[in-house]
């Protein structure tokens, strides 16, 4: 498989000037991205996660040509983004979760018409893509509504459609589900899945929402302090971070702490018990064991908090 996105020892250093008194400033260098290397193959769907200020947005900005790297080599579809920004723009789609690219006071369709002309999309192609987006993202009733009247979820769907009309080979999504309700999230995720499977569009999404990753991405990259901490499957991440999942068990009555292999009870409150077990493991044998030995009423599995996993991972790295 060919590497579609190549990032080779890329660095980004910001110079921050801080005022320390009248006319006095101290210059300080902040390394937002530190010797970052990875490749993404065509058609992959990658989740890019990390705490705030870890360097996620900086990476995406370098990949889209908004920022120029301080050092290292960067290629997207063989193009150097900051050098050939406009040429690259035809081949990428970008959705900024927090800022809309749509025209606030105009009907949604007008934003699409602008894209049609600005990107010089052939008429037939435009109609086809618009039709598909309208159908899958359920935008039909919204096309003639001014963007300012759309809800956050509707606007996000509108933004995603706007980023896809010119058939980009790669789609960058920055927090695509932030602030959306459950139904809107599900719609957005369903669409992205379909897009990746159907058109083979490469997708790179930054998110705080673990479920986005879980439902969409076969691969996760974790970045912290500008360094790549982990690159691989999601399950592996839990192992690497020694994350634990929690099984919440409701029994018929109050009982002493459950005894089961490879798990420990972390909390007991009346008939409810909380059991922690390694995140890399399936919950099925454990559930089967408890169901066989105890009077089980109900249960649920809680995923480990991604931030906690990363924090733990980082703490370990610092020690070793």
């Amino acid at each position: 498989m060919d590497a579609f996105i190549e990032v080779d020892r890329v660095e980004k250093v910001f110079e921050v000037r801080r005022r320390t008194g009248f006319m006095k400033r101290v210059k300080r260098q902040v390394r937002a991205v530190d010797s970052l290397s990875f490749t993404v193959a065509r058609g992959e769907m990658v989740g890019y996660i990390g705490p705030n200020g870890a360097g996620k947005s900086t990476t995406v900005k370098m990949l889209t040509g908004i920022l120029m790297p301080s050092a290292g080599r960067l290629r997207v579809a063989g193009i150097d983004p900051s050098r050939d920004r406009t040429r690259l723009a035809h081949r990428i789609g970008v959705v900024f979760g927090q800022r809309t690219t749509l025209w606030w006071d105009l009907p949604l369709i007008d934003s699409y018409r602008l894209a049609h002309r600005m990107y010089r999309i052939p008429d037939a192609r435009y109609r086809e893509n618009l039709e598909r987006c309208v159908e899958l993202l359920e935008l039909g009733a919204l096309l003639d509504v001014p963007v300012r009247q759309l809800s956050l979820g509707q606007r996000m769907r509108g933004d995603i459609a706007a980023a896809l009309l010119h058939d980009p080979e790669v789609l960058y999504l920055d927090e695509p589900t932030i602030g959306l309700d459950v139904v809107s999230k599900a719609k957005v995720r369903g669409f992205l899945k379909e897009l990746n499977a159907g058109s083979g569009t490469t997708v790179l999404l930054t998110t705080h929402d673990l479920q986005d990753i879980e439902q969409l991405c076969s691969r996760v990259m974790v970045i912290d302090h500008g360094r790549l901490m982990y690159d691989g499957a999601l399950a592996g991440l839990h192992e690497a971070g020694e994350g634990e999942r929690t099984l919440v068990v409701d029994l018929e009555r109050e009982l002493p702490p459950i005894e089961a292999p490879s798990c420990r009870v972390v909390r007991v409150a009346g008939p409810r018990q909380w059991l922690a077990f390694p995140a890399g493991r399936s919950a099925a044998p454990l559930v089967a064991h408890i169901a066989a030995e105890y009077p089980l009423v109900d249960l649920s599995v809680r995923e480990p908090d991604i931030e906690a996993v990363i924090a733990k991972m980082y703490a370990e790295k610092a020690v070793s």
Binding site: K61, T64, G65, I66, R85, T86, R87, A89, H90, I92, V94, F96, R99, T101, M118, Y119
Partner: peptide, 11 residues
């Protein structure tokens, strides 16, 4: 930060 939106357009 909305300048970024202009920077990803092909113009």
């Amino acid at each position: 930060g909305t300048l970024d939106i202009l920077l990803v357009r092909p113009a």
